Computed example of a mutant assay.
Amino acid sequence: MSDPLQDPRFFTDPYPTYAQLRGAAPVRKVPTGSGGRYSYLVTGHAEAREAFADPRLSKNTARFFAGQPSRRDIHPAVSQSMLATDPPEHARLRGLVTKAFTTGAAARLRPYITGLVDTILDDWPRNGGPVDLVASLAVPLPVTVICQLLGVPEADRGSVRAWSGELFAAGEPQRADAASHAIAGYMTDLIAAKRGTPGDGLIDDLIAVRDGDDRLSEAELVSLAVLLLVAGHETTTNFIGNAALALVQHPDSLGQLRDEPQLLDGAIDELLRFDSPVGIATFRYSTEALTLGGTEIPAGVPVLIAPGAANRDPARFTEPDRLDLDRDSRAHLAFGHGIHRCVGAPLARAEAEIALRALITRFPKVRPAVPAEELRWRHTRLMRGLESLPLLV
């Protein structure tokens, strides 16, 4: 059997593949890459939720790969980030940034986000379009917000976005590896510059922690800055694009929100469930043998959890392939679950809700500009997102 997660059809529409795999077993062994390598893929909702919280599934990839030769050249700031740590290191690192991404912190940013969205949409055409929602809203909004929060100069933000996109290039490891070094090198230089000329961004706060009471090593400081920069916009960019596409492809749902925009906050969960911006979560491995979903998983093997599949599990959501804004979808796993749940979830929700509300109210006739089969999707199994979304507005 070939790797089902590398089939070109998977990137365009992963849900038939997820359904087929989940139908056979909610946890199953699948080939990954070449050379007889394999992983265990978790596609069931209950099993994914359990796996996210199971301490026997480690995120410490450095430990897993210790002593193994590698053909990759990923910068340690990317390969050994907070996402690749277990407790207690994970709790220490996460605790340093949590306050910046609470629901309250996101609420305080809402006026800034709203003003930014209005400025972006002011430049959209008033003659019916067309406009590329990804390039002109889904990308610049979260990139600008996270760069503003961190203190990244405006002149550098285009490069940051380009490197970030390269990191997730499926099947092109050299591109991803080169991007990891570029973005780590940039953050190293930025940290050095900020030490000379401090500002009031989150990176400045982390530098103070590093230089003040030594709760961060220099390598951890660079890695945390890189992670916040990349994770702070990639997921949100994908979600805004996916959610907008879902709405313009479902005119009844779009009309429902147009008539009752106050429903949008609750609809965010259903939009996250329907087309999760994260298809397959980052790498885990089993530290001991375990049984998950009736499948025996030996010790020392990779385990991949697929929120995109879990969110379409008919055992948890009735008619999961149907967009239903009246559904209670709060059990979705788009942001993960447990100690590794996305720290930036409140900010991502706020950005998406503000952007979609403005899109619906300011452009009530918004509609697709091209047939669905002409849409281009990013070739990455980790992220689920559009390369572009042409709309008539």
Rank of each mutant, 00 (worst) to 15 (best):
V160A: 12
V131N: 07
T98E: 12
G158C: 04
T98D: 11
N127I: 07
G104Y: 05
R161V: 05
V143F: 14
P125D: 05
F101R: 03
D73H: 03
V78C: 07
D132G: 06
C147Q: 07
S81L: 09
R157E: 03
W124C: 02
T119E: 07
R126Y: 03
L109W: 13
D123P: 06
L83I: 02
R161P: 03
L137Y: 03
D86R: 06
R71Q: 15
R126H: 08
A84K: 14
T119P: 02
S81Q: 06
L83M: 03
T114R: 01
A77H: 04
V134G: 14
R72E: 10
V145S: 10
P130W: 01
L96E: 05
T144K: 14
S79R: 05
T103M: 12
L137T: 00
D122P: 08
D86E: 06
S79H: 03
A155P: 10
R126N: 09
E154N: 09
V78L: 11
D73Y: 00
A91M: 10
A91N: 11
Q148L: 05
Y112L: 10
A135P: 10
S79W: 02
L93W: 09
P87I: 09
V78R: 11
R161M: 06
L93D: 04
Q80R: 15
T103S: 13
A155V: 15
V160M: 15
L109H: 11
L96Y: 05
D132H: 04
I120A: 03
V97S: 08
T114W: 00
Q80D: 15
L116P: 04
M82R: 05
S81K: 03
A106D: 09
L83G: 00
G104R: 03
L150E: 06
H75T: 08
A77P: 04
R72G: 08
G115P: 01
P140K: 01
R126S: 14
D73L: 02
V97I: 14
A155W: 05
G95E: 12
P140Y: 09
A162M: 09
S136T: 10
V143Q: 14
L116R: 15
P125V: 05
P111L: 01
P76E: 09
R157G: 01
H75Y: 01
G158D: 12
L96V: 05
L83Y: 03
R71Y: 15
I120Q: 10
M82F: 01
S164C: 05
T103N: 12
K99P: 12
V134H: 12
L141R: 06
L121T: 06
P111Y: 07
L133M: 08
A107W: 04
T85E: 10
Y112C: 02
W124E: 07
T98R: 14
D122M: 11
R94N: 08
R71A: 15
A106R: 10
